[in-house]
Computed example of a mutant assay.
Amino acid sequence: MLAHVTEVEPLVEHWRRRFDASASAGIPAHVTVLFPFLDVDLISTAVISDLRTLIGEHSPFTVRFDECRRFPDVLYLAPTPDQPLRALTETIAARWPEAPPYGGQFAEVIPHLTVAHGQQAHVFDEVEAELAERLPATATISSVSMFVSDGESWRRHGEFPMLK
């Protein structure tokens, strides 16, 4: 489950294609809402209906990306405000506790748009310096997309608009 950040795609697509494997696997520039989600075989019409209802209870919102930040192995753009994204994650994870964010790996989920992953610090420095000249960027989040994988690539499996 992800929030596609269409307006930021031109800013980051060059770097993502080079340094984020999810881009070449078919995932657009995004902020993750919930990953992993349910196995595709478990995504029934009832699941789709529940997602439509839960996500539809949220309002569209605008985020601004002012700066790059880092996790140990990731360079990312930080969305502000991040609370609406956290709320989406919490809503979906509460409904499907068997699918905790990032498999329960992290105590706190930090919304982010990955630009580069698994690179040396000097590569992150170069990417960050180039992006800093082009920031800030603003995007409107008005839906959540579900992507599923066939083991090699990802494809959009559903789109859930925020309606409130």
Rank of each mutant, 00 (worst) to 15 (best):
A87W: 01
A46S: 15
S22D: 10
R18K: 13
F37I: 07
A23S: 07
A25R: 15
F71P: 05
A25S: 13
R70T: 08
C68E: 07
P36K: 05
R17L: 12
A87Q: 12
S59G: 11
V74L: 14
R52M: 11
V40N: 11
C68M: 11
A78D: 09
T80Q: 09
L38G: 04
L88C: 02
E67V: 09
H58I: 01
S44H: 13
W15F: 14
T45S: 15
V63G: 00
R18M: 09
T89E: 10
S24F: 05
G26L: 04
P36G: 07
S59Y: 08
F37T: 06
A46H: 15
Q83N: 09
D39Q: 14
L77W: 06
L77F: 07
T89F: 02
T89G: 03
P72L: 03
T32L: 00
T53E: 13
V33E: 02
T62K: 09
F19I: 06
T32Q: 01
V47D: 13
W15V: 04
T80E: 11
I55Q: 09
L77D: 03
L51S: 11
S49Y: 11
L54A: 12
H58N: 05
A46N: 14
L34P: 08
I55L: 08
R70H: 05
T32C: 03
R18W: 04
F37N: 06
G56T: 10
P60G: 07
L85K: 01
A46T: 15
R17W: 11
A78G: 05
R64F: 06
V63Q: 01
P36Q: 07
A23R: 02
Q83W: 08
A46L: 13
D41T: 15
A25W: 05
V47G: 13
V47F: 14
L85R: 01
P28T: 01
T80I: 06
P36F: 06
V47H: 14
A25M: 14
A25H: 09
T80K: 04
G56D: 08
S24Y: 06
R52S: 15
D73K: 14
T62P: 05
L38Q: 05
R64A: 10
D41H: 15
P84L: 02
L88N: 00
V47C: 12
D73E: 15
P28K: 00
S49Q: 14
L75Q: 04
L54C: 11
G26P: 09
Y76V: 00
L75T: 04
L54I: 13
R86Q: 04
S22F: 02
S49T: 14
A25P: 10
P60T: 08
L77H: 06
T80Y: 04
P79E: 07
H58C: 03
L85G: 01
C68W: 08
P72I: 04
T32W: 00
P81D: 02
P60F: 08
F35G: 02
T62L: 03
A78L: 12
D39E: 15
G56F: 08
F35Q: 07
I48D: 14
D39T: 13
S24Q: 14
R17V: 10
D73V: 13
L54G: 10
S22Q: 09
